[in-house]
Design a protein around this nucleic acid. Structure first.
Lengths: 110, 110
DNA sequence: CAGGATCCCTTCCGATACTG
DNA sequence: CAGTATCGGAAGGGATCCTG
């Protein structure tokens, strides 16, 4: 189950849907670099697990809207906490990587 | 960066290290089904990103201890919140999957 | 004990083409 | 518009063997 939260796209899609219902193509535009294939797959999994509901409007051409339901909203808070942490600390991580790269070069070099 | 938290093993290793410093083999035993290969790789990434520090004791045979440093500890709280959420809601997810499987069978069947 | 190197099979995923 | 189907390359990761 933690695997799904760990999925690269799942989190991004959820964060977009946190801003309100979105249509398939709107999600595609809001989540950069996601392919139709992965967007479909991600949405199917989220629907399957009860995080989002899918509404089909039988217009022509058809449009489909996805929205978070109660379960999806409930996990938004802990998720947002983690995202907030990541934003606060990404600089520290970047610094750590620089230090690590430097010690790597020093330790294994000629 | 969120990718790394999304990694299957990273979270599990971090949660074990939350209980205190551990040696390499102890981690291997504490995280079921992780291979030496993946444990090494996961620890390298965590070290690289400044979440854990690595202490080598020049005994014979050598032993290596990993422990969370400040950055690692700081992310434990949001992570724990997410894990707590998962534990509270895994039943709801399981129920959603059952419903989904049922509607799948009904919708696409003969 | 801790971990690097290699092999090799599996899964993931993007590109492309087609449909209701 | 919102998908589905198929293919092929790229990446993930286990098994095994080797070293300090």
């Amino acid at each position: 189950m933690l695997d799904r939260l760990g999925d690269k796209w799942t989190t991004l899609v959820l964060l977009v849907l946190a801003g309100g219902p979105r249509r398939f193509s709107a999600l595609g535009r809001a989540v950069p670099d996601i392919s139709k294939r992965m967007l479909t797959q991600t949405l199917r999994e989220l629907e399957r697990d009860g995080f989002v509901t899918r509404h089909v409007f039988p217009t022509k051409p058809p449009s489909v809207e996805y929205r978070l339901d109660a379960l999806g909203h409930s996990m938004l808070e802990p998720l947002a906490a983690l995202v907030a942490w990541a934003e606060r600390n990404h600089a520290a991580v970047a610094a750590a990587r620089t230090r690590y790269a430097a010690s790597e070069a020093a330790g294994h070099g000629p």
